[in-house]
């Protein structure tokens, strides 16, 4: 293991977050088994108090997971000089098999925690807590992801040794290499550009439709998720090169560096926020016919749609700014 303050911070943060979540899951089991809102018994009152604890814990879990996601990438970045051939996080994460899995699990757990908070927020607006069991089942579903994330991240960080030879963004994200990513990059750039410039307005338009008409939540939700994947792909395949001003440099991480004004942070944050709000619109949709929620859900969906529209637009604006004001002239390629 490498004794690095960033590594200690990540391990400590993850361990704390996951143990809080495990405790919440334990409370969740008790709530699923014993919840009876009609009862005035002391046990029921106590369970009701516990729901506040779990809500609080989950808000912190989401916050910490988000911070931890970025700290993870940043740490991988700072560690890159230790590995031969690594120039940024792309290389460090490739040092052992756990790096990229940990990253994906971190993103997934952020999305899941965000979705749980959307469901919780919705449920807390209804006087009879109609989703209480469902949301604690969801919590039980999320917990293994965080445990996996913590273990895989620990596997990655503890397995780091200086001087390991790795390959970095130059080869991982290039069209010559034989990786999944390079297969993707080998697709004509026009295709990914077309996909992005189609899916962005469609997502925003559907968001507006949900916002104005309170209809089409499922479609919006599915499209939002597809757009989430397309956005990440677009960022790697063609948006990033305008920021790097290098036609062959497709790195998802270098864009987080100070050389590029940390522009990657707002972009990734916008992608995550729009994914959570888009998916959130759909995840609460099945419950809109419940009596106590029928007035609540359309309002929440409206708000989520608005958040999604704003964050998608922010992403497109930043990307557009990068493309328009780049010194990279694509005409030459």
């Amino acid at each position: 293991m490498i004794f690095h303050p960033g590594i200690l911070a990540l391990l400590l943060g993850s361990a704390l977050t996951t143990s809080m979540l495990c405790y919440s899951a334990y409370e969740g089991v008790r709530i699923i088994r014993n919840w009876d809102i009609r009862s005035g018994s002391e046990r029921q009152l106590e369970l009701e108090r516990r729901t506040y604890l779990v809500s609080t814990v989950m808000s912190y879990v989401l916050g910490f997971q988000l911070l931890s996601l970025f700290l993870f990438i940043y740490t991988a970045d700072t560690l890159s000089p230790l590995f031969i051939g690594a120039m940024c996080a792309a290389g460090s994460l490739n040092v052992n098999g756990f790096g990229y899995s940990a990253l994906v699990l971190k993103i997934v757990s952020c999305l899941l925690a965000g979705l749980w908070l959307v469901v919780n927020f919705t449920d807390n607006r209804a006087y009879d807590y109609p989703l209480i069991r469902k949301k604690y089942w969801l919590l039980l579903f999320i917990t293994p992801f965080l445990i996996a994330e913590t273990s895989v991240q620990a596997g990655y960080l503890l397995g780091l040794r200086p001087n390991i030879i790795t390959s970095c963004c130059g080869t991982l994200f290039s069209t010559d290499a034989k990786t999944v990513m390079s297969e993707f990059l080998a697709l004509p750039r026009l295709l990914s550009e077309a996909a992005f410039f189609l899916s962005a307005p469609i997502t925003v338009a559907l968001g507006l439709y949900v916002y104005l008409r309170s209809k089409g939540a499922y479609l919006f939700s599915i499209v939002s998720f597809i757009h989430f994947l397309i956005s990440i792909g677009a960022l790697i395949s063609f948006i990033s090169i305008y920021f790097y001003e290098l036609p062959t440099h497709h790195c998802p991480f270098c864009i987080l560096h100070p050389e590029y004004g940390y522009v990657g942070y707002p972009m990734y944050l916008a992608i995550l926020v729009s994914a959570v709000s888009g998916l959130g619109t759909g995840i609460i949709n099945p419950f809109r016919n419940i009596a106590s929620l029928c007035n609540v859900i359309p309002r929440i969906q409206k708000r989520l749609a608005l958040i999604s529209i704003l964050s998608n637009s922010a992403f497109v604006l930043i990307a557009g700014y990068g493309i328009l004001f780049s010194n990279l002239s694509m005409a030459a390629y």
């Binding site: 809102i37 005035g40 002391e42």
Partner: peptide
């Protein structure tokens, strides 16, 4: 909240309303 029984406030049943 009472352990059992019902409470009505202005014709609205509030017996098992959660604290929120």
């Amino acid at each position: 909240r009472p352990t059992s029984g019902r409470i009505m406030l202005k014709e609205r049943e509030i017996t098992s309303l959660p604290e929120r």
